[in-house]
């Protein structure tokens, strides 16, 4: 192993850990909140099963507004909110708040898009069989859209990694922050290159896993 990596081993491991925490929380938020929000966006649109203009317009506007922010600005803008929730606006835990919010907005759009790809006739068949809305979602929509949902999540996770590199501004740490502070600001270009290589490897692994799973579960 190159000497410089050995020298900074402890910091590198800690940074990778911080990135994992930030990206992990983002993924959880995307699945636990983004998926339902995206599903609601789909179900409440005009002509859909739960058509509801108010819910649709509200969610739609909210998602659009969050996604309009340059991410750095969103992080700063949310500082007071983060302080209320976490108790501090500084550190890895605090960094997860803006990340979770952008994760929800990001993935919910991709969920909505995947669900729009499900043929309308399949939903119609479900309704003609007497399915409840819940059954339409779990036994038809998600089954039919599952590879799109996985691919969307893959794309989202890679974006989350990218977003997490900005979190240095609120002391969130992470591998991106490490690369900037040690590699760039201390002129250790070699160290910065190694960090970039680590991130490239992560992204490759995630994309490969996502694509493989999506292909396996797609029987269409």
């Amino acid at each position: 192993m190159p000497e410089i990596l050995v020298q900074y081993q402890a910091e590198i491991v800690r940074s990778i850990g911080e990135t994992f925490v930030m990206v992990g929380v983002s993924i959880l938020a995307a699945i636990l909140v983004g998926l339902p929000v995206g599903t609601l966006l789909f179900l409440c649109r005009k002509g859909s099963v739960l058509e509801n203009r108010f819910i649709f317009s509200t969610l739609n506007l909210l998602v659009n507004i969050i996604r309009s922010f340059p991410f750095l600005l969103l992080v700063v803008f949310l500082i007071p909110f983060t302080r209320i929730i976490i108790g501090t606006a500084i550190g890895t835990a605090a960094a997860t708040v803006p990340l979770a919010i952008i994760a929800i907005a990001h993935y919910s759009r991709l969920v909505e898009q995947s669900l729009l790809d499900v043929p309308k006739g399949v939903i119609e068949a479900a309704i003609s069989m007497g399915a409840t809305v819940r059954q339409v979602i779990f036994k038809f929509l998600y089954v039919e859209a599952r590879s799109g949902l996985v691919l969307g999540l893959t794309t989202s996770i890679i974006s989350f990694i990218s977003y997490s590199t900005i979190m240095g501004v609120v002391g969130g740490g992470g591998i991106g922050d490490f690369a900037i502070r040690y590699g760039y600001q201390q002129f250790k270009t070699e160290l910065m290159m190694y960090m970039i290589i680590i991130m490239v490897i992560f992204v490759q692994l995630i994309q490969f896993t996502g694509t493989t799973i999506a292909r396996r579960i797609d029987k269409r």
Binding site: G121, A125, S128, M129, R146, K219
Partner: peptide
């Protein structure tokens, strides 16, 4: 009650509308 009633009314379609992932 309508959902219940629909269970004894079968329906088939021009484009079959099967779930492709099942």
């Amino acid at each position: 009650e309508l959902r219940q009633a629909r269970k004894s009314i079968g329906m088939i379609f021009q484009h079959f509308n099967l779930v492709a992932n099942k």
